[in-house]
Design a protein around this nucleic acid. Structure first.
Lengths: 120, 120
DNA sequence: CAGCATCCTCACCGATACTG
DNA sequence: CAGTATCGGTGAGGATGCTG
């Protein structure tokens, strides 16, 4: 059940479109959002696992970004009452669906690189 | 001729993917890139036309962002030697192809809004 | 018309140290 | 282990005025 919401069909660019796209953009922009989402795309992970797979992120940043992603409904946080406690992070359904968007961005990024290289 | 570059097929998230997606992200992030691209998606425009359709952007910002987009191969700038001079901006082929990405972002943004609203 | 030059502010992010 | 607290730098972006 596809709706008629697309730039190509609209033949114009209403502000609501820009706003909706901007919502998506805000969810994934910033220095660490993408690496974090990437590290969670295929498996749930604990705080320090994410930190390790990403590499040079500080706990302050990781904490902040995860809180952000959780607030935006991208990530689900689960606390296990072990000693010491462990916390698992996983993408929500919406979060997983982001891979569709990322795929398109990947595709465009590669095509654009080729397109601009051929002009030199 | 589709290539096997997609997160879903890869079943993992290589850094090159993150980098390529990041390239795309850099092209469209910032406060004004989206409004500018939106205003050029369906017709070429002059500097002050863009400024007028966007509304509250300062010439300093518009100038800077357009220069940026031009450097990234998103926008073509043409100077006409009238008096006073007029300058036209239009999207390149790559720039126009961005609508595919924006459509996906629009789609996801709308679905995400619905998904999160239903959880309240 | 299509910008450039200056000055200024604030959010983003890093480094480091500490805690339940 | 999973964070919080504090300090400090830097760059994106705004305001205003001027120019070829």
């Amino acid at each position: 059940m596809k709706n008629i919401v697309s730039f190509k069909e609209a033949k114009a660019c209403p502000i609501q479109f820009v706003l909706a796209v901007n919502d998506t953009l805000n969810v994934i922009s910033g220095k660490w959002k993408l690496p974090i989402i990437g590290s969670l795309l295929f498996e749930k992970k604990r705080f320090s696992d994410i930190q390790r797979t990403i590499g040079k992120i500080t706990p302050r940043m990781l904490s902040k970004e995860l809180k952000d992603l959780e607030m935006n409904g991208m990530v689900k946080r689960t606390v296990y009452d072990t000693t010491p406690i462990t916390v698992e992070y996983e993408l929500t359904e919406s979060g997983k669906l982001l891979s569709d968007v990322l795929d398109k961005m990947l595709e465009w990024g590669l095509q654009h690189r080729i397109a601009t290289l051929s002009k030199n």
